[in-house]
């Protein structure tokens, strides 16, 4: 298990009902972690429409997660 911190924005923040949380997880990748959280919290967006950032940098969906990582799941963007 690793301990990670997750920060939520936009639709995920609303569906989670909070801005952030600390979590112990066995998930090895952002996709696995998202699926775990989606099952728990009922996020409507499927994993293939979410990008991930770890420690404020975009990462691949299958990048390894490490203890202490700060993770942000990025729903489809709409700037401009």
């Amino acid at each position: 298990m690793i301990n990670v911190r997750i920060q939520y924005f936009a639709i995920l923040r609303e569906q989670r009902g909070q801005n952030e949380e600390a979590l112990a997880t066995a998930a090895a990748t952002p996709t696995a972690l998202y699926e775990e959280l989606r099952a728990r919290h009922g996020f409507t967006l499927p994993a293939d429409r979410i990008r991930a950032a770890v420690n404020e940098t975009f990462v691949a969906a299958d990048a390894p997660l490490r203890d202490g990582d700060r993770i942000v799941f990025i729903p489809p963007v709409a700037g401009g």
Binding site: F9, L45, R49, I50, V77, A78, G79
Partner: peptide, 25 residues
């Protein structure tokens, strides 16, 4: 990584591009 929520005259709101069909981020 910027998101837009529209507030409609009808009183509803929606996060743009975040309906469960459409393009990925």
């Amino acid at each position: 990584p910027i998101w837009k929520k529209e507030h409609y005259a009808a009183g509803t709101t929606a996060w743009i591009n975040c309906a469960t069909r459409g393009e990925a981020a």
